[in-house]
């Protein structure tokens, strides 16, 4: 792709999906898929390192394996000008199935990278229809949010410890569906400020609503968006710096 050289690199910010089969990719595999696609796209990419060139990119915080998302964010650095729509088209042609470009935007290279911006993730959780009652879920949500602290035993490969997940939960709404089911809308710490995983909240909440983890395993979880908190507003990094548009997405 022939382009005009730039005095300083531009930031190409992309919003991507990670759906269908791509939801089974680990974070490292997903990031690999994007780097390979970026090289295939022919975009004028910026590389770091002299001997062993490495593609410069910044990714939003890892998505748990198996969870679908419509709002993953990636920053690539461009050393030549390409219109955002053209960059979107070039990448769309070379991304593997399940990873699609929803939105692309050019920003100044001096803007903060997504990896350093994001602190909040919005999730939608749909437990199996027969798991608990709407009333049970609502009561559990009220109880959860009214507590000062909620302890959770976090098991990690190298250590197990008890953490307080309450402060990392910024929103917990129960929406009733037609029939008997509910959808839980969560806004959780994710990224620079620490991470609370959706499964951790579901496990505690399920315990309060009297639904076992065995049943809850069948829940469908999607990550709806990634945000930066500004006071009590959630701002999408896609909108940052855009005039009159600090849209509080994820708050319906």
């Amino acid at each position: 792709m022939s382009t005009r050289p730039l005095p300083e690199p531009l930031r190409l910010r992309l919003r991507l999906t990670k759906k269908a089969r791509a939801r089974f990719l680990s974070h490292a595999e997903y990031s690999r898929a994007i780097m390979f696609a970026a090289r295939r796209s022919g975009l004028p990419l910026e590389f770091a390192g002299k001997h062993r060139p490495r593609l410069k990119l910044s990714l939003s915080p890892p998505l748990p394996i198996g969870v679908e998302s419509g709002g993953e964010l990636v920053d690539l650095s461009l050393v030549g000008y390409v219109p955002a729509a053209e960059a979107k088209r070039a990448l769309s042609e070379v991304l593997p199935p399940g990873i699609e470009v929803v939105e692309a935007r050019l920003m100044s290279g001096s803007d903060k990278a997504v990896g350093k911006l994001i602190d909040t993730a919005a999730y939608l959780v749909s437990p199996p229809e027969d798991a608990g009652t709407p009333r049970g879920w609502r009561d559990a949500a009220v109880e959860f949010m009214s507590r000062d602290s909620v302890e959770f035993t976090r098991v990690q490969p190298r250590r197990t410890r008890v953490v307080d997940i309450r402060k990392g939960v910024h929103r917990l709404d129960v929406e009733e569906l037609e029939g008997d089911g509910v959808t839980l809308a969560l806004a959780l710490d994710d990224g620079v400020a620490g991470t609370v995983k959706p499964w951790e909240v579901i496990e505690v909440l399920g315990g309060m609503a009297g639904v076992s983890m065995e049943v809850l395993k069948g829940s469908r979880i999607t990550r709806e968006g990634l945000f930066s908190r500004r006071g009590d507003r959630l701002v999408s990094p896609m909108e940052l710096g855009r005039r009159g548009a600090a849209a509080p997405r994820g708050r319906r």
Binding site: R21, F24, L25, S26, E29, A33, F36, A37, R40, I65, G66, V94, P96, P97, G98
Partner: peptide, 16 residues
């Protein structure tokens, strides 16, 4: 079964 195993990507196919 894919969520029960290490590295589900081994069994996915559909690579570029």
């Amino acid at each position: 079964l894919l969520l029960e195993v290490e590295r589900p990507s081994r069994y996915l196919g559909g690579e570029w």
